[in-house]
Design a protein around this nucleic acid. Structure first.
Length: 296
DNA sequence: TTGTGTTTTACGACCTCC
DNA sequence: GGAGGTCGTAAAACACAA
């Protein structure tokens, strides 16, 4: 146990506040700081008359001020008593800013100078802010961790879906080539679609699109060569996704990036024209059906 | 007992608000 | 311009390991 505490504990004749007379033995734990060491203490010693009221002063003792200052060494920094701190803490919890009336009231109650109360609140706010910053940092760190993990799993899912699309596209192409061969040299558009009918709507839409391009570019020939279709599908320069697929992602804070903004495919979610076309086509059929029921 | 790191008290500089 | 705030820092008080 250090010297200050021994002195503090031995000052029973004056109660807790008795220690104020005895804190003269030199410095803190290091023992390296002389009582009047440091610029500020030296200055205070030089000033001499600077009789700032010390801590641990009860209201009764305030009445003995002259007696006290006659014996007191100048300007020693002292800690507030646990009781004083407890009251200040309670006051701080109620309101962390200090109106002048409350400051005076607290100072009177605690036997401190209003300036001490103000300083205590300033320091307390600073400590609170530091704690708050630490707390915020921890919260952000854990939030970042969970976002990172979400991001990773989304990337994995994206990869999985991409390879699924590629695999299905290849399957469809080989099946189309086989059925075209079986049907002879004059396969029709409907043949191709029939062959593709087992595929999902998105794949179908891709295939149809490829055919349309082929038709437009070759004077109306409907013959679909498997390799040609593959080349058509692979013709996109910026993405290995088929033409007609649009990057609709990634979603960032509720905002979807446009293609212009995001030049890479990284993190994109792809949707085909066909998916929307098929959906719209289906809706058209439903509408037509409804019209028929209404008007007939 | 001592060295060292942390916490608490106090202050000056600067800023904002009324 | 004054009062009261934050910020940065000095120094005392304190805790603790060696």
């Amino acid at each position: 146990m250090d010297r200050v505490r021994l002195i503090f504990d031995s000052s029973s004749s004056r109660g807790r506040h008795g220690q104020r007379m005895l804190l003269l033995g030199g410095g803190g734990g290091g023992g390296s700081s002389p009582v009047f060491g440091g610029a500020r203490s030296a200055l205070a010693a030089a000033e001499g008359a600077n009789k700032r009221r010390p801590f641990f002063t009860s209201p009764e003792e305030l009445l003995e001020e002259e007696y006290y200052y006659d014996e007191q060494q100048p300007d020693k920094k002292r800690r507030l008593s646990p009781e004083q701190v407890r009251l200040l803490e309670r006051s701080f919890e109620a309101e962390n800013k200090l109106e002048p009336e409350r400051k005076s009231e607290l100072a009177r109650t605690l036997g401190l100078q209003p300036r001490q109360v103000a300083v205590w609140f300033q320091n307390r706010r600073a400590r609170w802010k530091t704690k708050q910053l630490e707390h915020d940092f921890d919260r952000l760190k854990s939030s970042y961790g969970s976002l990172l993990s979400d991001h990773d799993s989304l990337l994995k899912e994206n990869d999985r879906l991409r390879s699924q699309v590629i695999s299905l596209t290849e399957k469809l192409q080989s099946r189309t080539a086989a059925s075209a061969g079986a049907a002879g040299i004059a396969g029709t558009k409907s043949d191709v679609q029939a062959a593709a009918s087992v595929a999902d709507p998105a794949t179908l839409a891709v295939q149809t699109k490829a055919e349309d391009r082929l038709s437009a570019g070759s004077g109306g020939s409907a013959v679909v060569d498997g390799e040609a279709a593959k080349q058509l599908v692979d013709s996109s320069e910026v993405s290995y996704f088929p033409e007609g697929y649009h990057c609709m992602g990634p979603v960032d804070g509720g905002r979807v990036h446009s293609e212009e903004e995001d030049v890479s495919d990284e993190g994109c979610n792809y949707y085909s024209d066909g998916m929307f076309a098929a959906e719209h086509h289906h809706q058209d059929e439903v509408d037509a059906q409804l019209d028929w029921w209404v008007w007939s």
